Amino acid sequence: MDPIIAATHADPYPFYARLRAEGGLTFDHGLNLWLASTARVVRAVLAHPDCHVRPAHEPVPNSIAGGMAAKVFGQLMRMNEGERQRCPRSAIEPELSTIDSREVQALVGARLIMPGADGLQAAMFRGPACVVASLLGFTPAQGRIISELTADFVACLSPLSTPAQLDTAHAAAEQLSSHFRELLEEQSQQSPLLAGICQRFTATDSHADSLIANLIGLLSQTFDATAGLIGNALVALIENPSLRFDTPPIDELLAEVQRFDPPVQNTRRFVSAPCRIEGVNLNKGDTILVLLASANRDPQLNHNPDTFLADRQDRRSLTFGSGRHQCPGQALAMEIASATLKQILKVNPTLEQLSWHYRPSLNGRVPVFFDRAKD
């Protein structure tokens, strides 16, 4: 096993433990990158000003350069540093904190979740994007279209995507941009969330393309990560029968899932200038694989970390990152996942009939379910 394969391995956590035992920041000669595996080092890397989210020589992946997906990607706050990161974040993050959880629950409750693996997949992947689309002011019919386009767009974020998928991602980026332009033109009908973002965005950045790109980014971040959170919660219920028979509060269950078996296993940082982190000298151009899932299982971060405890006291997690690039939509993702999981459990009570494998990914841990009869 290596740290990349680990993300979709059946049980990567003993491997992560071995990495932590070797030291917090070690070099993998096979992958030609540094590995940050302990909580202390992961926090240090995420906080360091010289550790950036994109390499200086490649701000946009070469695989999508020249297309519409690249134009969107290049303006995403999560893929930038400095003002290009702070300005859109200062407009979007405060408004996300104003969303009423009851509205999220109502939007999830209004969606029909079908029983069986197919219904489960739709609820995990399409449902959360539809909820965010509704919060931004799209109609239910438009939301379904937006969720499908988001599914196509996220292909541009994966190095594993085929040329055909990347072509589809460019087309999806174009269509999503058009839908948002039309939505923004209907100022009298804007949702409170969108109106608030627009008001704050005008004060920080007058460039409409940046606003639209980051609204698309809000959808794309919701798509895989929330699906993985919901899916890994179901895996926990399947693998721990005691949880099924004495189900803890869903919010507590999800809080432990995002620590114990997170949907985002790792992220990367690129060294922009020579620096020293936890006693290790790093050079400009070095790449660090930040193993968030390993840090969550560090005994220095959580007591008895390899035990699933829904009622865990003083739970600490780095799943949503930390520092300047900490995910601004954490609370919203947890709200959507909680409401969706409650609805799923109403229509999919026989979880033992499900099997799963993990979607191909270099950093995500997102289960894909299927009925055992179809295995």
Rank of each mutant, 00 (worst) to 15 (best):
H303C: 10
R126H: 10
L107S: 02
H57D: 15
S242K: 12
A117R: 09
Q221V: 12
W356H: 13
P249H: 08
D251W: 10
D152S: 14
L112T: 15
T226V: 14
S322A: 15
D298H: 00
V45P: 02
A203H: 13
R54I: 04
F320N: 02
S242W: 11
L135Q: 03
T267C: 11
T350C: 13
R268G: 07
P360D: 06
A36K: 00
A21W: 02
T162R: 02
G127K: 05
L112M: 14
L215D: 00
Q330K: 11
L254K: 00
G231W: 04
A255P: 01
S161W: 02
T168C: 11
Q165M: 11
E252F: 14
L254W: 02
F15G: 08
L19F: 04
L120D: 06
L351K: 06
G82A: 09
V257Y: 03
P55H: 07
Y358K: 04
I5F: 14
A70P: 04
V264S: 09
L351W: 03
E22N: 13
G285A: 08
I250F: 07
G364A: 11
A225Y: 00
A213D: 05
V347H: 10
A70K: 04
A373M: 10
E174S: 15
L33G: 02
L160T: 04
P299A: 01
P299N: 01
L135M: 05
Q326I: 09
D251K: 15
S147W: 03
T204A: 14
H52W: 15
D371C: 11
E335D: 14
Q187L: 08
A117Y: 05
